Simulated scan of single mutants.
Amino acid sequence: MSSTQTAQLMDGAGLARRIVAEAARHASEITRRTGVTPCLATVLVGEDPASATYVRMKRARCARAGIASRFVGLPAATTTAELVDTLGSLSQDPDVHGILLQHPVGAHIDERAAFEAIAPEKDVDGVTMNSFGAMSFGLPGFTSCTPGGIMRLLDEYRVELAGRHAVVVGRSPILGKPVGMLLLARDATVTYCHSRTADLGAVLREADVVVAAVGRPRLIRGEDIKPGAVVIDAGYNPGNVGDVDFDSACERARLITPVPGGVGPMTIAVLLAQTVDAARQQTGATTDVRAEC
């Protein structure tokens, strides 16, 4: 870390622990009132080591939060039709309250078709078109977990968004696009940037809030950051490296998320909170456990 650092670190790990603890209390209350334990089903296609590690981590977090987890491992050769059938069966299973398809899946699978096989009321990862539409129109539904976690972090550090210029670098359907819509809902002026954006640095230097979500290590450097800006690094690349060059960005940003320990823990926390909320809705329990995204 640079000796000239001026930015305050945004502690996603600490906030995530509080969110998970709250979800655990509500999960326990649901079980006490209904006899039902909230359950998250995780589907993994193939044996990619990184994906398998993520799944194990999520299952361990479920256990600590009093959430049951069901693991469904499918061979790498699984077809789109077979995956859709598996997700459809889980959607019909009353003992499962939330469904997570670990992505990315193999290139031979139509990922969008697979996502759409998840019932909206169990889409606790916020990946379906139904969830995106509900979020965009401000209607009830589940938020994409990483964008939801980012908004929780911004709220925790009392970042004023109304009237501010937010630049989102990345346009994926489960991160870049939804976080831009959530920022827009808070009255920020939102600019999306991507691989075809001309003079990215010039756009970034006008941003009060930067969300980096493009998957290119250290793409954004300190000279691209407006002094006093808030920098959210949602990138994760080999070697625990984000999309932002941390040391140089710290010299100009007011607030910044570290990698790891920033956005990542928040993603899992929101996933668990939304799983408990899905269980509340499906069991009719009266406790409100909605993640405040």
Rank of each mutant, 00 (worst) to 15 (best):
A21D: 13
A7E: 00
I232Y: 06
D85Q: 15
R196N: 02
P173D: 15
E29H: 14
P238V: 09
G14C: 11
G106R: 07
K177I: 13
R252N: 00
V211H: 02
E251D: 15
L101I: 04
V230R: 00
D208Y: 06
I256Y: 00
N130F: 13
V36R: 11
L9D: 01
A65N: 01
I118R: 12
R290P: 06
L139W: 07
E22I: 01
L204G: 00
P227H: 04
A52P: 07
P227E: 08
R158I: 11
Q274A: 10
T6M: 03
L183H: 09
G141R: 08
A253N: 03
A285Y: 12
T37M: 15
L44K: 06
L175Q: 11
V169P: 02
S248P: 04
A212I: 06
S28M: 07
G239Q: 11
A212G: 10
F142K: 01
L15A: 01
D233I: 01
D245K: 00
A63R: 02
L271N: 06
V211P: 10
D85F: 04
P140T: 12
P49I: 03
P147V: 11
E292M: 14
A234V: 15
V231W: 00
A50F: 06
E223F: 03
L83M: 11
H103A: 09
R152F: 10
N240Y: 14
V209C: 09
A185R: 09
G149V: 07
E251N: 01
E223N: 02
S91E: 04
S51M: 03
V263T: 08
G201D: 12
E116F: 03
L219W: 02
R70L: 14
G222Q: 00
T267Q: 05
L161V: 07
T143I: 11
G35P: 02
E111C: 08
L161M: 13
R152L: 15
S2Y: 01
C250R: 01
P178L: 11
G35R: 04
V36I: 10
A234H: 04
T267Y: 06
V263D: 08
V105F: 02
V43N: 05
L101H: 10
G14V: 09
I268H: 03
G176Y: 08
R171S: 03
S3Y: 09
A27S: 05
V231D: 00
R205Y: 09
V289L: 09
V168E: 14
I256E: 00
R152Y: 12
T283C: 05
E116M: 13
M266G: 06
T79V: 05
V72E: 13
L175F: 04
G228T: 03
L101Y: 10
M181Y: 14
D277K: 03
A207K: 09
I268D: 11
L200Y: 12
I67D: 00
V259I: 15
T287F: 06
C250L: 06
F71Q: 12
D199K: 09
I118V: 12
A207N: 05
D208E: 14
V179S: 05
S195V: 10
L15S: 04
R61F: 01
I118S: 07
L154R: 04
V190N: 07
G262M: 00
Q8T: 13
P104D: 09
D208P: 10
P258G: 05
M129C: 10
